[in-house]
Design a binder for these strands. Structure first.
Lengths: 94, 94
DNA sequence: TAGATAGTTAGGAAAACATCTAAGTATCCG
DNA sequence: CGGATACTTAGATGTTTTCCTAACTATCTA
């Protein structure tokens, strides 16, 4: 369910850049938006999609909303790719 | 270039299912199509996208075209996710 | 060579998506 | 309260994606 949403969320280059930015630590929506040429509502839309996919979480602090990575879903995705690299040539099907 | 294409290719559930099918070994286009309710040209289209993303390769043998995984791009993608899990929180040594 | 089989290409309709502007909500501060 | 700041929601628009049917290419076989 959320697995498919995560894959779709990551398909967009803007959203991948947002995730990369967040690797350094949490950022406000405005700070994130400042890294892009597009308007703030568009960035907000991307943040919403990342949040629905459980790739990020948000936290309000006064007027600011801080976004940060939620690495648990990344681990699930990591495993999905790992299984291809690991079992790519083998015949170990249970 | 191919990195973004790969992410887009993997975003579609049908294409992910194709990749999963190919983990067991190479399959013809027809065998792949038989696993889906959609028409053959639609599956062919998905195969084309996977091929352009370098996630699969194809090989003709008589009337049949065999598709198989190309795991090298999977390794690149794997690394991308790994960097999030590794540097994100850094407290799971595995 | 003709017909059958395997698969792709072409063209088009419907749905999903990314982006914009305008308007709304939430919070702070004087 | 009223204005400023931070951000989101709503609605519209152009683009991309997915899927279909019809037609095409390639190969095998009789």
């Amino acid at each position: 369910m959320s697995f498919n949403e995560a894959f779709k969320a990551i398909a967009d280059p803007t959203r991948r850049k947002i995730l990369t930015l967040l690797r350094a630590g949490e950022l406000t929506a405005g700070e994130i938006a400042s890294h892009f040429a597009m308007q703030k509502p568009s960035v907000s839309h991307h943040l919403k999609i990342l949040k629905q996919a459980d790739l990020v979480q948000d936290r309000r602090e006064g007027q600011h909303i801080y976004y940060s990575l939620n690495t648990t879903v990344f681990q699930d995705l990591l495993r999905w790719f790992y299984d291809f690299v690991e079992k790519g040539e083998g015949h170990d099907e249970r």
